[in-house]
Write a protein that binds this DNA or RNA. Structure first.
Lengths: 338, 338
DNA sequence: GACTTGAAAGACAGCGTTGTCACCTAACGT
DNA sequence: ACGTTAGGTGACAACGCTGTCTTTCAAGTC
């Protein structure tokens, strides 16, 4: 397993190793024909620079960190997918770390991670992107980072996000356009940032349409199936139940559908149900869920890409907003004729 | 950011760097008091060895690779979770790589990955664990690997798995014990290894109980919601429909439940439905799904752990079987009285 | 034609570890 | 008492790159 090193390439190309290094790192002051010779040797020998040596000698490491902490496995899976995708295109690699435990250990955790292996930047997925001790360390050590869908502290580093409020507004407007006037809303977990934004979008749409908001139609939830189930029971047992229910994530929407089914209400004929996220489950229920697609994979990919080529983002455009999409499937229809 | 190096530790402890290295790597021939001095200095200085230098100089890298290729995001998320868990306990780190594209590119992909960054071992999650070009490269380069739930080639390296057949048999036996005699079965994707095993377990249980197997009760599926939906339509429209349906994964089981609901059949009163995997979705339907819990996180954790401490597994015990669990929730009940 | 200049390329010293080998010392055998 | 041995320790050279500094060389300049 004597692997091919930069020396082999240099010999074959008839140049010094430093010149090979220059070519590989796209440094200036290399003549075109020299560059070609080197590139030729690289190709023939199928040379791949050794990461450890690069990291040790230079300032870059070609390693991108992904810090997460157990939200749903499928969310993590999607984030990872997007990040890996961005990395492999540029020869970077993804180092995944979980930042968990108590709040007061986060700082130390991150510090020792960074000490052990140098990374060129780190992608912070929720909820880690909102842990200030983590941001502190990263800022102190001047390690570039990009946050995915942060909940606050918008001045701390670049981030990628989507417009939750506008998405919720659009979805509500869609329900209104179908003819619904009595629309129930199931809120998310009170501590999650998206909860407020989505509710705000909902109320905004109602206001814009001149439809009064009945407080009884807004029920608390916690982003779980069970909480959606509970909220739907309250909503559908109201004297004048809503003709449509907008649950602020898919998990809860599925809970709502379950209640409707048990109450012999046909979805969408008797009651429309819509969700938010376009989680895998949205397609695993019948009827399939009309929902808002969150561009999770794209956000992760964009985040990693921003770390890899910071040049691509002109100053001032540090953060990126990605577009959501309204996915119309079968769970919403016009309200039953009164 | 002048970080603390082994030299600092050596100075503070009044020994040579080599001795520090010995202590850190638990090498023999270090006096107890010397070891204590070094450990003390390490603690005071909060020293963390630099990964890149270790990898470059030595034979170990403290990096574990995880090769995957897009099964469901939640599966990947769980595998990753388990692997990270095992890694962090021993100061290792997880490098995640996706092996995708065409069959004939796999070899090159893996080769160049390994060339770039040295890993101490790699965890192969399905379906990558069954791609022989990948195994070829790993074997040639003598890189330890552990496969998670491989579909075949059981002599190629150690693996972790669960007994799909026995699990399916137990689940079927459970259904029989409830009193069911007409049990439908929805097969998985024909190319997936688990498909055969699960079917075999199903038939074995029937045979053991002396219940004849009606071929019409075994329907093809593909591990997707839609395929479960289709299979259930065929099953429940039979002249003498089954009183219970065993779908060989949860996704399909949920499809079966959807059909039952649409046909005004109450689950589990009119028809029992059970699944396999204990995917997140199993708890996001009503009634919640009775299913077999696949120890995905544990398998990934065990796989990574086997790479990290190969000593722990005595020769001959190269592979590990992990226990499944029958998760009884609300979707199965005794059959309706004929 | 000698002199300046800047682009192109090379020499060489690290980077922070581990591997190898040499060295020292105390305990052992005879 | 003296070689022998093995445990304990240190010196120093890799490992494969990049950073810094130096050298070379061809093209201008007056």
């Amino acid at each position: 397993m004597t692997s091919i090193t930069i020396t082999d390439v240099a010999e074959r190309a008839g140049v010094s190793i430093k010149t090979v290094s220059r070519v590989l790192n796209s440094e200036p002051n290399v003549r075109e024909d020299t560059r070609a010779k080197v590139l030729g040797a690289v190709k023939v020998l199928n040379y791949r620079p050794n990461y450890a040596a690069r990291a040790l000698a230079g300032s870059r490491s070609y390693l991108i960190g992904l810090y997460y902490d157990n939200p749903s496995p499928s969310y993590v899976g999607e984030v990872q997918y997007g990040a890996v995708k961005a990395c492999r295109e540029t020869g970077h690699h993804l180092l995944v770390e979980q930042i968990d435990g108590e709040k007061d250990t986060w700082r130390t955790q991150v510090e020792s991670l960074l000490r052990q292996v140098k990374v060129d930047g780190v992608v912070l997925s929720p909820p880690v992107c909102d842990r200030s001790p983590v941001l502190d360390v990263l800022e102190e050590q001047k390690i570039p980072f990009v946050r995915i869908a942060p909940a606050g502290d918008w001045d701390r580093g670049p981030y990628v996000y989507m417009d939750d409020k506008r998405a919720a507004r659009d979805m509500t407007a869609y329900l209104l356009s179908l003819g619904h006037r009595r629309i129930g809303f199931v809120k998310g977990h009170p501590e999650h940032a998206a909860t407020q934004a989505r509710l705000a979008g909902f109320t905004q749409a109602l206001t814009e349409a001149g439809v009064p908001l009945d407080p009884a139609y807004v029920q608390g939830g916690a982003f779980t199936f069970r909480s959606g189930f509970g909220a739907a029971e309250r909503l559908l047992n109201l004297p004048l139940p809503p003709t449509a229910i907008f649950a602020s994530n898919d998990e809860m929407a599925v809970g709502v559908m379950a209640v409707a089914n048990r109450m012999q209400l046909n979805v969408p004929r008797d009651v429309s149900v819509v969700g938010f996220d376009d989680a895998p489950i949205a397609q695993s229920v019948w009827p399939q869920l009309t929902t808002v697609r969150q561009p999770v994979v794209e956000m992760a990919e964009a985040a990693a890409a921003m770390l890899i080529q910071p040049r691509a983002s002109p100053p001032g455009t540090r953060s990126r907003m990605l577009e959501f999409a309204l996915i119309v499937r079968g769970s919403a229809a016009p309200p039953p004729l009164a």
